[in-house]
């Protein structure tokens, strides 16, 4: 009697975890293993049954000339959007952390509301704005004497157009994260700094930015995860075109799986994607945590 009760208290914690663990196993852990397994099989419209073929799918990935473009697009997208988004977010957060009265709420709403819009809908807004003939953006650019840009139909400008849309959509969220970080900095620090006669830039350099270190680590990692998973905008705005100039990693996986029905190839890409993402996040956490020397 007493021994069975003892057992029950021992397994009780695990029982609480069962629902979550079961679901996570089926939809997160097993898929990763399953992808790895599938990536070793040739499985496409030409094969009736999956055929084991070692690393053929991985080799095929690198033989595909489009893959190079896809990697370049994804990297350009990440390197282009993350710093600009962070800069805008930080700038707005610093300004909005001032005492501005009731109008502060309006600014905050104006910057944050794009977070509430579905990416797909944001893509639609952007398609309309970037319309070469009657779009608002070209209209205002023309006023400044800029010749008509074909935007989404132009090999050079399609990706920047998507990046601009993403920056507009995302910076407000990161601004809030920075605002939260700023509000955790004790006001006394600024007071004593001003007694010491520190000017604007030195306060920014020696108080604000260092104390925002942990927030920045979080923002960069979030930024990388979001920008590596960009898909909706590409799907709605360009379908990867023109000539794959906006084809990014997740879109390429989708294309291989559900347009070309090549699950083997798509799985190999998935495995590579997961590995690259985990390594990036791991390295960044390590690297940046060493540089974040102040603690809040």
């Amino acid at each position: 009697m007493s021994s069975s009760r003892l057992n029950l208290t021992k397994i009780r914690p695990y029982l609480y975890l069962v629902p979550s663990l079961a679901l996570l196993s089926v939809f997160t852990y097993f898929p990763i293993l399953y992808s790895t397994y599938l990536s070793f099989f040739r499985q496409n419209v030409f094969t009736l049954e999956p055929v084991f073929d070692w690393f053929a799918n991985y080799a095929a990935v690198f033989e595909e000339p489009v893959f190079k473009i896809v990697v370049r697009n994804t990297v350009v997208y990440a390197l282009g959007t993350i710093p600009i988004t962070m800069f805008l977010a930080l700038l707005m957060a610093i300004l909005l952390n001032e005492q501005l009265g009731w109008i502060r709420d309006i600014y905050r709403v104006a910057c944050f509301y794009p977070t509430m819009i579905p990416m797909a809908a944001a893509g639609m807004l952007a398609v309309w704005l970037f319309n070469p003939g009657i779009g608002l953006i070209n209209h205002y650019l023309k006023m400044f004497g800029v010749p008509t840009i074909e935007w989404l139909y132009d090999m050079k400008w399609a990706l920047p157009a998507i990046m601009l849309t993403a920056i507009w959509k995302n910076f407000g969220y990161f601004m809030l994260i920075y605002l939260a970080g700023l509000q955790n900095i004790p006001g006394e620090l600024y007071e004593s700094a001003s007694i010491e006669g520190c000017g604007f830039w030195s306060r920014l350099r020696y108080i604000t930015l260092p104390l925002l270190g942990p927030t920045t680590v979080f923002v960069v990692i979030q930024g990388i995860i979001t920008s590596f998973q960009v898909f909706d905008l590409v799907y709605v705005m360009t379908q990867g075109g023109p000539a794959d100039r906006t084809n990014v990693f997740v879109y390429y996986i989708y294309q291989n799986a559900f347009r070309f029905w090549d699950f083997g190839q798509a799985s190999a890409l998935t495995v590579m994607f997961v590995i690259v993402l985990l390594i990036l996040v791991f390295i960044l956490t390590r690297f940046m945590e060493r540089r974040v020397h102040y603690e809040v």
């Binding site: 089926v26 997160t28 996986i253 799986a257 699950f263 799985s267 997961v274």
Partner: peptide, 19 residues
Amino acid sequence: FIVQMMLPVHATIVPNYLI
């Protein structure tokens, strides 16, 4: 549990579709 924060279903779309 933390791993799942970094790997939503979108990262493993093919196996999830098959499941």
